[in-house]
Design a protein around this nucleic acid. Sequence first.
DNA 1: ATAGGGTTAG
Length: 728
Amino acid sequence: MFFGRAILQDGHPLLMLIESCKTLRQAYQIHAQTVVNGLHIHLYSLSKIFSLFALFGCSESLDHSRLILSRTDVPNVFMWNTMIRAHSRQELHGKAVLLYPSMIAQARALPNHFTFTFVFSSCARLPTPVPGFQIYGHVIKRGLESDTIVMNAFIHFCCGFGDLHSAQKVFEESPVRDLVSFNTMISGLAQGRKPHAALSLFTVMTRSGLMPDHFTFVALSSACSGLNNYRLAKQIHNLVYMYFGFVDCGRSAHLVGSVMDMYLKCGEMEMAEKVFNTLENVKSAAALSCMVSGYARAGKVELARQIFDQVDEKDTVLWTAIISGYSQAGQYTEALSLYKEMEASGIKPDKITMVAVLSACAGLGALTFGQRVYNQCLKKRLYGQDVILITAIVDMYAKCGKIHAALEIFHGVPNYQRTTHLFNAVISGLAQHGHGKIAVLVFEEMEAAKVSPDEITFTGLLYACSHSGLVEEGRSLFKSISQMHGINPQMKHYCCMVDLFGRKGNLDEAYKFIQAMPFEANSVIWRSFLSSCKLYGDVEMGRIASTKLLEMEPDHGARYVLLSNILASTKQWEEAGKVRKVMEERGIQKPSGWSYIELLDGTIHQFPASNYKLHPQKEEIASKLGEVNGRLRAAGYAPSTVDVVFDVDEEEKEMIVSYHSERLALAFGLLNSGPGEVLRIMKNLRICSDCHLVFKLLSRAYKREIIVRDTTRFHHFKNGLCSCKDFW
DNA sequence: ATAGGGTTAG
């Protein structure tokens, strides 16, 4: 044996060997030697050997240390503490915390302040705060509550669960507060979105004579990053200069990165860029990800992409930042194709990546892709641990037309995980699907669960009411926004109300409502009012609305279209033609429509209006369209051309409507799907009334369920009827 | 004891 002799003479060389031990094999040899030499009887040597295994860093060594511990009659505090720390390091936080009761049940060794420090750091990572608070009871029993190290660990634990109240109480009652106490508390306030409290605590800290360090400023800049206050950001940056001079970026990359992120989150791109450039060649992965998401948030996806492309070793966070950037910019297809690239490059997505991908699927209405991602979440056991991920999945199902799947998942979510966001996603989903009454019921559930609604909740609810014709419910909900919930109704809420009254044909009430608003109605409100006027053929009111709109936005295409529609529908062709002409003269075009459909294999096929000639299956599509028209005639269909604004002859109008993009997508869908398969079509404009009728007829003629998502809502066509009950 | 990426509506 390579060290046998030395041990016989003295124990210390063995300890030196332990310190230089590099491989697990050597560790086993050393352990065997101590047994051979009888050294393992001495608790001191045994503890050393034990900690070598416990902290070695792999599960095999940890198992071995467990074995040693179980064979030790009276393990000392050091051994227990080491064991707790070892589990904590290997992310086995539940087991780490459970070691504490075994320790106090068995040992004569009393827990000391190290014990509590280690236990609290694991408690902070558990799904529930309960064990941590129980253990705090023991801290008090042992009289360790004034121990600064234990207190700091406990504050950290409380902040991790957002329990700032307990954290502050302990902090304030503590006799000795050191730099770490202040840093921990400031950082907790920052995480808990209490930036002002964080700032004032910083003042308290400096007044009490403590010198802030890098940790302090990292916490402070993250506190202020949500304030959107450029002057404050600059002040903090100045303080950093004041305390540390021009920071050495190599050593203070964390701090510099935090300051940069603060500027990014304030939208101060120029300052952020300046700071970014000072990082020169020590740009950390964190700094790069910050820049990518910062540019994306500022709407500069292309710049974000440039940074992303320059990074050689892209990690999960960076990939997620760019995917989410594209998704937020509405470039869903690009987001999904980047996700495929990420998978191909072998970087593992985590739950945040999944959220970004799911939100792209939702935006696109890509059900097959979305379901695949959901299954991956289940397989990787990502599902269930995170509320935002659940929200993203619920939203994906709702926006892909599967509102029942969305509800099923929602119902499986326990009350404590139900957040405002989650309720909002469900309520808006129900609204989009025209389930107004259920939306109101879910809202009641929300109130019962004491989850506070916000302005988005009410937007969804009022939207739901207006799409289901629930005038009374809408009226009382609107009143409750300010009276019961202390939220000032915003323009979008007024907009929903005008829509609600208008859709029901209460044009007078809608008009009065607009006049009684506390602020000037915007163009969206007038446009909504105008379209109700059109629906009910009220030319007089319509004129008022279009005059208003003309003042507000002379160049908006939709207004001309609506005005000429309203005139055309009452056969005032000449006037309608004039409007059309003005529109043409000013070079304003009606936005062009396009639709797309996803096949079961997950491929997405897009069709612009009147143009399928570029599609490889153009001939089949043409003949399918012919067949479809035949079926329609057999069902007694006469094309409705109310929505065609041109004053052309009937035959030509018929041509125009029969090539609407949703029809092309439908013909393609019928060609490429099995019998009985549901067809899901997405459209960038509202579905026209003629296509709506056609889809109803076709759902019966072909015995197919057809789901159309247009800009405002879902239409489920089944057996000759539509879920919107022709009210949209 | 530090830092980076995420959800709803419009």
